[in-house]
Design a protein around this nucleic acid. Sequence first.
DNA 1: ACATTAAGTGATT
DNA 2: AATCACTTAATGT
Length: 215
Amino acid sequence: MNVNEFLGNIFEINLIKDIEAHGKLMECSVGESLIKNGQTIRHIPIIIEGAVKVSRVDEEGQELLLYYVNPMESCAMTFNCCMSRQQSEISVIAETDVKVLLIPIAFMDEWMIKYHTWRSFVMRTIKFRFDEMLHTIDQVAFQKLDERLIFYLKEKSKTTHSTLINLSHQQIADELATSRVVISRLLKKLENEQKILLYRNQIKLLKTFDVLTKR
DNA sequence: ACATTAAGTGATT
DNA sequence: AATCACTTAATGT
């Protein structure tokens, strides 16, 4: 895939030239860590292909999934970090094989003023995440774990382009920061409602699953 | 055949 | 919704 024509849809021509001159294209395979917790951020990542998982991790290694970053998006948290030149508060892991465009943060200030397409790109990704985070905060606050799980499975199938999800109950529990038993129970309930099929390390989403949603 | 790991379940808080 | 304790099922060696 041609990176330039990809960027051409959202950025102005001079900005693309600047990106060509200073950006670096990097490829990562599944499971690789792009940003570790506490690491100082030197680049803004823009996803070209694949998807990346952003999560919070506490001292005990307990993780909470924040969001996924899909192609043509960037990571709102890194904008935060680099504006204040802080360390990363999050960890980023390749969810699939990914192609990422890395922009050194030194250009942030300059480009924000110089290119309105850059400015609106940054604003758009921050707004998008902010709205999404509000949504998950709502879910957490009102303890709707079942809804969170359904939402999670949908996101999963969207990013993997498959209705067959290769995850153990334990892995899901870890991402949603709950216990395996709870996930097993909720999944069982969904299976009884004919929304999904359960296998070992696999979950099949049925057509009836699409219907469930309040988003 | 046996050990290991994933998933299911009742009871309790 | 979480935890415990235990069972059952699937998978690897």
